[in-house]
Design a protein around this nucleic acid. Structure first.
Lengths: 209, 209
DNA sequence: TAGATTGTTAATCGATTAACAATC
DNA sequence: TAGATTGTTAATCGATTAACAATC
C-alpha cells in the first residue's frame, strides 16, 4: 500500500461488498473479475486494479473466493472492527436512520442520541436512549465514541460540528445540508448532502429531455 | 457545450450553488473564482473550468455577480423548472424526507406517497396524501411524474423500480441499499446509499488511526 | 491608466483501460 | 496439459492545474 488509494477506489469498495454479499446469499462462492465487471457495469481491469492496491486475494485461473473477498473487503474498510456511534440531532432524519439502518449487522453500536427537544429527551428510539444535548460532554467521559451522526438543523450545524470535534470525536457523518468547514481541523467528515444528490438527478433528467 | 461535462463537474455544481447562496444571504453580491476556491478548498482554475463548460457568466477584472451566478447554476441544473415528485415507500426514511427536505423552495412539488401499510394509507404526511400502492398506475394517468423517491424495503426494491420505470417515470432517486440494475433501461437513477457513505467514512477513520 | 480576473489553451497529473507474463 | 484468470506493467484517456492573452 505505497500510494494511498484514490477516493474513487474507496467509494467502489462498498459496492463490491454489496455485490459479493448478494451473490454469496445466492449460493455463489466463486467469482471472476470478468463476471463481476459485467454484472456491475465496470471493467475487469478496474476491479483488479482496485483490489490489488490492498493485497492479492485471488488465484490465477480460478478467480476470487467470494467469502474470502467479502472478509478482506470488510477488513480493508475497517468494518470488521466494532465502532461506537452517537446521533446528535434526533429529528425526523436522525430518527429514521436510528430506526432503519442496520447498524448492528455491520459492527456499529449506536450508544445514544442527543437532542434538546423535551418531547423526545428521556425517550428511547429503537432501544437507543435519547439524552439532552447538555449531557454529551459527560457521556463522552464514560464512553469513547468513534462516529457522530450529525442531523441537527442547518442553522446550528457548523457550531455543533465544531464542538463535537473539540470534544474529541474523530469522525462526523454529516446529514445536514451544510458544509461544515472543518477542513483545517483533524476531523474526518463524510457528507451526505441529500439536495446535492437530488439536484444531480435533476440535471440528468433535464439533459435527457 | 460540445463535450458533455463530467459527473465530477456536475457533482460540484450543487456545492457552488450552496456556497453562493450562503454568501449572498450574507450580503455579498460579488465573488471571484479565487476567493471561492479558497473558501471551498478547490482551485480557482477548476471552478472556472467547470463554469465555462456551460457559458460565460463572469467579467474580467471583476469576477462573478453572485445573484446572476446563482440564477445560472439553477438553470444549468434544471431546478428553475418545476418537477413533480412522488414517494414510493413511506417508512421512516421516506417519511423523514417528505417532512424534512425543503422541496417546495427548490421547485419540486411532492404530489403523493404510496405504500401498502394500512396504518398510513389514507393519511397525509406534511400535507402530502398517502395512497395504496395499487393506486399508482391510476394516479399516473392523471398526473405526470418526473421523479420517484424510492424508499421501499430492500427485498422489493428491484422489482418496484422496474415497475416504476415501466409505468413511464423517467427518474428514480434511490434510497434503498440496493443496486437497482436498470442500466440497460432508459431510466435515470441516482443512488443515495447510506451504508456506502458510512463505510467510506469508516475507512478513513481507521486509516488515520 | 493600472490592477484584477475572466475564459481558454497548453501542460501536467492521475485514473482507467489494455495487454500479458505468471500460474492455478 | 490446455484453459482460465490473476496481478502488474505499459498505454491511453480524461481531469485538474497552470499560464496567459483578453479585457473589464
Amino acid at each position: 500500500m505505497h500510494q494511498s488509494p484514490s477516493p474513487n477506489t474507496i467509494n467502489r469498495l462498498p459496492k463490491y461488498l454489496r455485490y459479493l454479499s448478494g451473490i454469496y446469499a445466492n449460493g455463489e462462492d466463486r467469482i471472476s473479475s470478468f463476471k463481476m465487471a459485467e454484472d456491475m457495469d465496470l471493467t475487469a481491469s478496474q476491479i483488479r486494479q482496485d483490489l490489488s492496491q490492498f493485497g492479492s486475494y485471488g488465484a490465477q485461473g480460478y478467480g476470487y473466493q467470494v467469502p474470502r473477498l467479502i472478509h478482506e473487503l470488510k477488513k480493508i474498510l475497517g468494518i470488521d472492527n466494532p465502532h461506537n456511534v452517537i446521533a446528535v440531532g434526533v429529528g425526523s432524519i436522525g430518527r429514521a436512520l436510528l430506526t432503519h439502518l442496520n447498524f448492528t449487522e455491520h459492527n456499529y453500536s449506536v450508544c445514544a442520541g442527543f437532542d434538546i427537544d423535551p418531547e423526545i429527551v428521556g425517550t428511547t428510539i429503537n432501544g437507543i436512549p435519547i439524552y439532552h444535548a447538555d449531557k454529551l460532554k459527560e457521556f463522552l467521559k464514560m464512553t469513547p465514541v468513534d462516529i457522530c451522526i450529525l442531523a441537527v438543523p442547518a442553522s446550528i450545524a457548523k457550531e455543533t460540528a465544531g464542538s463535537i470535534v473539540e470534544q474529541g470525536i474523530p469522525a462526523i457523518w454529516n446529514m445536514t445540508n451544510v458544509d461544515l468547514g472543518l477542513s483545517h481541523m483533524k476531523a474526518i467528515v463524510e457528507d451526505l448532502h441529500f439536495l446535492d444528490s437530488l439536484f444531480a438527478l435533476t440535471y440528468y433528467l433535464n439533459e435527457n429531455a
